[in-house]
Design a protein around this nucleic acid. Structure first.
Length: 233
DNA sequence: AGCACA
């Protein structure tokens, strides 16, 4: 459930931090740290992969600390720098809940600094984008009583999040609850893709396993100028 | 299943 993407935000943070730490302080490649790509090879699944990555990252982190305290120190320094630049620059907003603070900050930073969508500290974790990728997601499977605020809560932590629009449609079958769809805008299709993968099948009701599984797709845009020919070539 | 707003 939610764990996946919270961890994801964390994993990205750690990955970036570690990359930066290595780049900054360790001049020569160290075999102890060097992690062959084969450890997390081309895995298709988005959210699973991210979960994996996090564990891996943690485990490796411990190994690294045991072997070289240099890295630990520099990592620590990195964190301090990162934090201090926040502390001096912008007073910490009274965001409700400690958990939300970091992803939101992260998002803002990436939104500004990472416009070119390569903003992952060099490593790209995402699978290649499908040809129909757009920067808007189409989401269905929302419970009919869900609010815009509620949906925003889910998507806001993702880098590049811009806006969510709820749309209510009457059910086709009489007497059924109205259907709630929503559109979520991101800055880039790649960022949309991350959220799509991470939230695919997300359960609104964590207790009821059968109900309210989110289904996400890239939104189709209104009829494009290419009018009518659908065949190949 | 279902795709709106500029």
């Amino acid at each position: 459930m939610a764990e996946a993407y919270w961890r994801y935000a964390d994993a990205r943070h750690q990955a970036a931090a570690q990359a930066a730490a290595q780049a900054a302080v360790v001049p020569t490649p160290q075999p102890a740290i060097k992690r062959p790509r084969s450890e997390y090879p081309d895995m298709p699944g988005g959210s699973e992969m991210l979960g994996y990555y996090t564990h891996d990252e943690e485990r490796t982190g411990y190994r690294v600390i045991r072997d070289t305290e240099t890295v630990e120190a520099s990592y620590d320094r990195y964190l301090r720098n990162g934090i201090s630049s926040y502390g001096t620059g912008e007073p910490v907003r009274p965001v409700a809940g400690g958990m939300t603070a970091r992803p939101v900050d992260d998002q803002r930073v990436m939104g500004v600094a990472g416009m070119d969508r390569s903003g992952y500290g060099g490593g790209r974790l995402e699978p290649p984008l499908p040809p129909d990728a757009s920067n808007t997601l189409f989401v269905e499977g929302l419970p009919s009583d869900c609010t815009r605020r509620e949906v925003s809560h889910i998507f806001r932590p993702f880098v590049g999040f811009q806006e969510v629009r709820l749309v209510t449609k009457d059910s086709r079958h009489p007497g059924q609850d109205p259907l709630v769809l929503c559109f979520v805008d991101f800055v880039t299709p790649a960022q949309a893709a991350v959220a799509l993968e991470a939230l695919q099948g997300y359960k609104f009701d964590e207790n009821d396993r059968e109900s309210s599984n989110l289904r996400l797709q890239f939104a189709r845009f209104p009829p494009r100028s290419s009018g009518g020919h659908r065949g190949r070539r």
